[in-house]
């Protein structure tokens, strides 16, 4: 039987095709209406039945093989073309992505959240109260009668004889204690804005954020206070920190202490952060004064408590090395955007 097409030659030609147009021309040449293959089909009628079967089989195989080769090459060429196109679609991957970045919590808001979250984990609730307060709750109920010299520790914004902008969040403690009708336990953190008549400068602000903690229960000891202070100090400044208590005075606690944390910058060796002392003052604390318990309806023979107060701006300045408190209140996007990762 004569060979209509040299398959090897066809294969060679097909593989040599450089583009789809050439390949299509070849397809027409081999398999089109006018192709040898198609023309030879007309000879079929003249063949004997046996020959016709054999010839038909041959033609079919040939068609299949050609189709296979053509399709194969078409795929190859398509991939090559696609790759070329994709290469041409190359973009500058070094350019910035779309802005899906979140903003930041306020510097102060973020630290308040952090402290509250620590407290919540160990059973504290968050208590809040009015910022325009009565003298009665802000001072008198805290063992600070009118004209007590310790009132000079906090120069206060008065609105009238009785009302003032709270100078501390302690009145929230008083209000919470009163609401408990003499029944413990009470375990609260009181975050909030407080106001004192200080000129705004690098280290003072007439408005600042305070967080006070209060625990009142039976059998509370000063060692419990020291324990919780250490816990907060370590959560805030690192697990290697130690604390030191210094005797101090607050009208609403007795005994009262100032709390220093070992310097996180030099580990207590002395550096400019801790002014070479190895210690950094972070908060004030003490055992709730019996007069305060009594005035708030708790029997000091049954209940005792401890309290502590943190200045949040101070913590922020220490932690982030902020040298001027006014940055915190500027709402400068260049400042705020630095605190995205601090949650």
């Amino acid at each position: 039987m004569e060979k209509i097409i040299n398959l090897d030659e066809a294969k060679k030609l097909i593989l040599e095709c450089k583009n789809l147009k050439q390949l299509n021309d070849l397809r027409i040449f081999y398999l089109g209406k006018k192709s040898l293959l198609n023309q030879s089909m007309s000879k079929m009628a003249k063949l004997s039945p046996e020959e016709r079967v054999a010839f038909g089989k041959y033609i079919n195989t040939l068609k299949q093989d050609l189709n296979y080769l053509l399709d194969e090459q078409k795929n190859n060429l398509e991939i090559i073309e696609l790759n070329e196109r994709l290469q041409n679609e190359t973009i500058d991957i070094s350019l910035d992505g779309d802005d899906f970045s979140s903003a930041s919590y306020g510097i102060i808001g973020g630290i308040v959240d952090e402290i509250c979250n620590i407290g919540i984990g160990i059973g504290f609730s968050i208590a809040e109260g009015p910022e325009v307060e009565n003298d009665h709750y802000n001072f008198e109920m805290l063992n600070l009668p009118k004209d007590h010299p310790a009132r000079d520790m906090q120069d206060t914004f008065y609105i009238n004889d009785n009302e003032l902008l709270r100078s501390q969040t302690s009145p929230v403690q008083v209000r919470t204690l009163l609401s408990h009708n003499g029944e413990g336990p009470v375990k609260i953190l009181c975050p909030g804005k407080v106001y004192r008549r200080d000129d705004d400068d690098a280290t003072h602000s007439h408005q600042f954020m305070q967080i006070e903690g209060l625990v009142v229960d039976k059998n509370i000891t000063m060692s419990d206070l020291k324990g919780i202070l250490l816990l907060f100090a370590r959560k805030m400044f690192g697990e290697k920190r130690t604390i030191r208590l210094r005797s101090s005075f607050f009208p609403f606690t007795e005994p009262s202490v100032e709390v220093d944390v070992s310097c996180y910058n030099c580990n207590g060796k002395g550096c400019n952060v801790c002014k070479n002392s190895g210690w950094i003052e972070i908060l004030g604390a003490g055992m709730v004064h019996p007069n305060v318990l009594k005035m708030s309806g708790f029997d000091p023979k049954i209940y005792r408590g401890y309290a502590f107060g943190i200045g949040v701006e101070r913590i922020a300045m220490l932690r982030y090395g902020i040298d001027d408190m006014r940055h915190i209140y500027s709402n400068d996007i260049r400042v705020l955007s630095q605190f995205k990762k601090e949650r």
Partner: peptide, 28 residues
């Protein structure tokens, strides 16, 4: 309590333990 303060400040606050918090309340 004023005298108790005298006692601890003279003997030293290092005499205080650091007790772990007793949790008897639900925080949140």
């Amino acid at each position: 309590e004023d005298l108790i303060e005298e006692i601890i400040r003279i003997l030293g606050f290092e005499n205080l333990q650091e007790t772990n918090p007793k949790i008897s309340t639900f925080g949140g």
